[in-house]
Structure formats: C-alpha cells, structure tokens
Design a binder for these strands. Structure first.
Length: 294
DNA sequence: GTAAATGTTCGGGC
DNA sequence: AGCCCGAACATTTA
C-alpha cells in the first residue's frame, strides 16, 4: 500500500535521514563477519581478564524466551570467553566449560562494549561482566533473542543452510539452486529468506534489487539469466561494501545508495531523480525506481 | 492519538 | 502438503 500519511510533524520537510541511517547500522553491526575487530579489546593476553565475573539480566523479558535463564547464569559465571562468530543477524559466543551463548539482533538489537562499572539502561537485557569490561545487549523492541546451550559441540540452532555471502562458497550455483526452490516467490521474498541470503534484511533487499535493476515483485521463475547474474553480483557487492562501512564502524554507506532515499516520503532514484514507488512486497514496505526496475 | 519501523514465527484459510 | 497472508511480539519515533 502506498504510504500517503499526510501528517508529518514539522510541516512537510519529512526529513529523518539520521534515523534512517541509524537503523541499518544497528542491523549491520553483527552481520560483520569479522567480529575480531570488536573483540580484540575483549580478548587480551591475560587469561583472567576473559572471565565472566557476573551477569545482569531481566529474566522475564521476551528476549530470553525459550532459554533457561537460571542455567545460563549458573553455567556462565566463572567461564572464559574463547571465541565469537557472526552469521547473518546472529552471533555465537563460545566459552570454556562447553558453554555457548547465541544472540539474534532482531530489528532493534545492538551489542556493544562498556566499562566494568556500566549501569544497565532500560532496554539492556543482558550484561556480561568481565573484570575490566562489560558486553551489553540492548533491544528496545525485543524481537531479538538470547540463546544458551551447554555441550561439547556447536548448538543445533547455530547451524545454517547457507554460506556467508562474502565467502567463496556463496556462488552462482548455490544461488541458482536456492532460487529454483522458490520459483513462485517474488524475488524480494526470496532475498529475505535467511537460509538463502543470510543477513539480508528489508533495506538491503531493496538496495540489491535497485542496483540489479529488477522489480521486487517479479517472480524468480521470470528472471532472465542476465538478471540472475546481476542479482548474484550485486548481492556480493552490497554486502561487502556494507561491511566496509556500517559493519566496520557504523559509518554511512555511499551517498548514492538507495537507502538514503527509501524511507523518505519524497525519495527519488539516486540516478535519475525519478520519484520512488512504494508498495508492500513479501509483507514489507518496499521502494523501487519505476524507471530503473522493470 | 496514529501509523510505521531494521525481523521472525505461528496459525488459519485455500 | 504447501503456499500466502495477517497477526503477534514491545517499543520508539514521526
């Protein structure tokens, strides 16, 4: 449905660029496949410094749905962080003693490092306290999730059907086979399926389709070979470039990307300045350029 | 006060 | 069985 909400406080300028950019930053924080960057402070040479000395949490909150918070506390305190991994919108933290902690960011989830004397704020659901630092998971809407597992092997919920998009394993063959399994779906819906395109969310799907010049509502069965090639290449490009900007230090993606326009009421195509069209595709608000994308 | 927002799951209807 | 759609989740923002 076209958004024709006429009311914008402040009289029609409708600018919200700051927030428009903030959202994907949060999103992308964990899609970085190089969490080592953020973890290097966290994992120093001194062994005792890795140790979890305490944790703060509100056990009743939705982000803990399905996990045994008592066990989490019991098992985690005293263990040391060994490694961390990112996969799409999820992260996995491995601790000594066969303890695994998973975090899914959902829509508004963020993770950051604070000092050891950090006082949790309203939506800080989990604070892992080390001697010198605290890892904080905050999520206002609580669509994210904290998971816990105890065992020698990786937890089942960490498994994924898809390789990382920037890896060599994510190749034409994989994408073609995946699209073949979703012939009737609009290409945008296919792009949003995490088992095919891990980490791709609403704004990146639109960014990819705009750059590949493909209409979001086009069924995958109708895609030409050229369009499939474009989607494959552009997906790699958008993800890689996003990791270099948003994923690295929360800085903005390039100025000429669609993301800067898509949530504006009067957004235009960065190439032609053609007014963008909006509709719901695959249940999500979708923006596209009627001139570039057919 | 209202609608929409970065995501995913679940249930109902076809 | 499989697919599509809408609702639900909880909160903030415009």
């Amino acid at each position: 449905m076209p958004r024709k909400s006429a009311k914008v406080p402040g009289g029609g300028s409708g600018r919200s660029a700051g927030d428009v950019i903030l959202a994907p930053k949060a999103q992308y924080f964990l899609t970085s496949s190089s969490p080592q960057d953020g973890s290097s402070d966290w994992r120093t040479r001194d062994c005792s410094i890795h140790q979890i000395v305490d944790l703060g949490l509100h056990a009743r909150n939705r982000v803990f749905r399905g996990s045994d918070v008592g066990k989490l506390r019991q098992r985690l305190i005293g263990e040391k962080l060994l490694s961390s991994h990112a996969r799409g919108k999820r992260m996995l933290f491995k601790f000594s003693g066969g303890v695994w902690l998973g975090i899914h960011l959902g829509m508004t989830g963020k993770i950051r490092v604070e000092s050891a004397d950090y006082r949790p704020g309203k939506h800080d659901h989990l604070v892992l306290l080390q001697r010198e630092r605290a890892l904080v998971f905050t999520d206002s809407r609580q669509f994210g999730q904290v998971r816990f597992y105890h065992g020698s092997d990786e937890p089942d919920w960490w498994k994924s059907g898809a390789p990382e998009i920037i890896s060599r394993e994510f190749d034409r063959k994989f994408v073609d086979q995946f699209l073949d399994r979703h012939l009737k779906a609009p290409i945008k819906a296919a792009l949003l399926i995490q088992n095919g395109f891990p980490g791709i969310g609403n704004w990146m799907a639109d960014e990819i389709l705009w750059r590949a010049k493909v209409l979001p509502s086009k069924r995958t069965t109708k895609l030409s070979a050229r369009e499939c090639t474009a989607i494959f290449r552009v997906t790699k490009f958008v993800v890689r470039r996003s990791l270099e900007t948003l994923g690295k230090d929360f800085s903005d993606p390039p100025r000429n990307w669609l993301i800067h326009q898509k949530w504006k009421r009067d957004g235009v195509c960065p190439i032609h300045r053609t007014p963008l069209r909006h509709a719901t595709v695959a249940g999500r608000t979708t923006a596209w350029c009627p001139r570039c994308q057919r």
